[in-house]
Amino acid sequence: TTVHLNGVTYTFPNPEEARKFVEKLAKTLNLKVEVHNGTYHIE
């Protein structure tokens, strides 16, 4: 599972880890999250 954040790409072997990371980040920084083909894009 891949996460794109400010031009940096993070790869998680575990989709659940990626989801938790994204949710925590989005909540902390009040960001918008979009998912395209299983890839998270955070703005």
Rank of each mutant, 00 (worst) to 15 (best):
E23L: 09
I42L: 14
L29I: 08
E34R: 12
T1R: 12
E23Y: 11
I42S: 03
V33W: 13
K20P: 00
T9L: 13
Y40L: 13
Y10V: 12
K24M: 13
L5W: 15
V22R: 01
V3T: 01
A26S: 11
L25F: 03
Y10H: 10
E34K: 09
T28C: 15
T9E: 11
Y10Q: 03
V8Y: 12
K32L: 07
K20W: 08
F12H: 00
V35S: 03
H4S: 07
V3W: 01
L31I: 14
K20T: 08
V35D: 03
P13A: 11
V35P: 01
E17G: 08
P15K: 09
E43W: 15
Y10N: 02
G7Q: 06
K20S: 09
P13F: 10
T28N: 13
N6G: 09
V22W: 02
K24E: 13
L31Q: 03
T11D: 08
E16I: 10
P15M: 10
L31P: 02
E17D: 12
N14L: 06
N30F: 06
A18W: 03
K24W: 14
T39G: 12
E23H: 06
I42H: 02
A26C: 15
H41P: 04
P13C: 15
Y10I: 14
R19H: 07
E34H: 14
L29M: 10
Y40M: 11
V3D: 00
E34A: 07
V22I: 11
T11C: 15
E34G: 03
A26K: 11
V35I: 13
A26Y: 04
K20L: 10
N6K: 07
T9R: 13
V8Q: 09
K32N: 06
E23P: 00
K24G: 06
F12N: 00
T1Y: 05
N6L: 13
L29S: 07
N30G: 12
A26L: 12
R19Q: 07
L25T: 03
V22D: 00
T39S: 14
G7N: 11
H41R: 03
T1A: 09
K27I: 06
G7D: 10
I42P: 04
N6C: 15
I42Y: 03
V22A: 14
I42A: 04
L25N: 01
K32M: 06
Y40E: 03
L29C: 15
E43Y: 15
I42K: 02
A26G: 05
H41M: 07
N6E: 09
L25D: 00
H36S: 05
T9A: 11
P15F: 12
G38S: 02
L31G: 05
H36M: 07
F21D: 00
L5K: 01
F12G: 00
P13L: 10
P15Y: 07
T9V: 14
H4D: 05
K32I: 11
I42E: 04
H36Y: 09
V22K: 00
L25M: 05
A18T: 05
T28H: 14
K20E: 09
L31S: 04
H36V: 14
E17R: 10
